[in-house]
């Protein structure tokens, strides 16, 4: 089958972090990020502390730092703006290698880059140790609205089906000599997207019929999912938010 694996970010390992219940990891990751964001940008040492926490978790999860570094490149387009800040900022300026840089702008850039990177790293650790399926399960157990988890569940299931359909359609187009290279040639591509949308829409209706035929009444029963996190699991994950919280508190008071 040509269907790809939808859990591209998941790293198969046997580690204590992988074994934790998803809701525990989601909570720890969110609290960690909140602590990072709440930290004043001038407390440079605090961000070093957060990085130590990240490295410690990555080590426990047996996820390579190279893997993390490579995947975190995804944030680049989002922080490009940060590199302009030192040149655009006002106020006090410092001179470095013949460049005149704004101090405020430097802090602004640092703020975006440091917090963004730490946020991305913590999300990557979560994604690397938790399958998308388990993430949804965790969100459901954390009382995330079922409407959202249901939509995400379907997306997870049908993204591959849709991608395969799109691929087949594209192969069929290319087989008939259509291979757009430039913007003004994309008419066929655009109508392909339209056709794909219609097909997805029709499939949605058929899936719904199949669900109703098996007694669907608006709620997907998650009864096979087993028990949620134990107190021991919560305790095992607690050091991450506790340490991050402590760092943030000291930085805020200091």
């Amino acid at each position: 089958m040509g269907a790809g694996h939808s859990h591209a970010l998941f790293v198969h390992r046997d580690s204590p972090v992988h074994a934790l219940a998803p809701e525990v990891k989601i909570t720890a990751s969110v609290l960690f990020t909140v602590a990072v964001v709440a930290t004043p940008r001038e407390a440079l040492w605090a961000f070093g502390g957060y990085l130590v926490v990240i490295v410690a978790v990555a080590f426990t999860a047996r996820i390579g730092l190279g893997w993390l570094a490579l995947r975190s490149l995804i944030e680049l387009p989002f922080i490009l703006f940060a590199f302009a800040l030192p040149f655009l900022g006002h106020g006090e300026r410092v001179h470095w290698l013949g460049l005149s840089l704004s101090v405020d702008g430097l802090y602004g850039a640092w703020n975006i880059v440091a917090k963004g990177t730490l946020g991305v790293l913590s999300s990557l650790l979560l994604a690397g140790t938790t399958t998308p399926r388990d993430l949804l399960l965790g969100l459901d157990r954390l009382r995330c609205p079922t409407m959202i988890t249901q939509i995400a569940t379907f997306m997870l299931r049908y993204l591959d089906v849709l991608a395969a359909e799109g691929r087949r359609m594209r192969i069929a187009q290319r087989s008939r000599g259509y291979d757009p290279r430039f913007l003004w040639q994309i008419k066929g591509f655009a109508s392909g997207i339209g056709a794909l949308f219609l097909r997805a829409f029709e499939r949605g209706e058929r899936v719904y019929l199949a669900m109703v035929s098996r007694g669907y009444e608006g709620r997907i029963p998650l009864s096979l999912a087993g028990a949620g996190a134990t107190a021991r699991q919560w305790a095992a994950a607690a050091p991450v938010p506790v340490v991050a919280g402590a760092i943030a508190t000291v930085a805020l008071l200091g």
């Binding site: 379907f154 299931r157 058929r206 899936v207 019929l209 035929s213 997907i220």
Partner: peptide, 12 residues
């Protein structure tokens, strides 16, 4: 139903 992809919509 005819297309199993319509019938099988859960993750496992």
């Amino acid at each position: 139903f005819q297309d199993p992809d319509d019938q099988l919509f859960m993750p496992t």
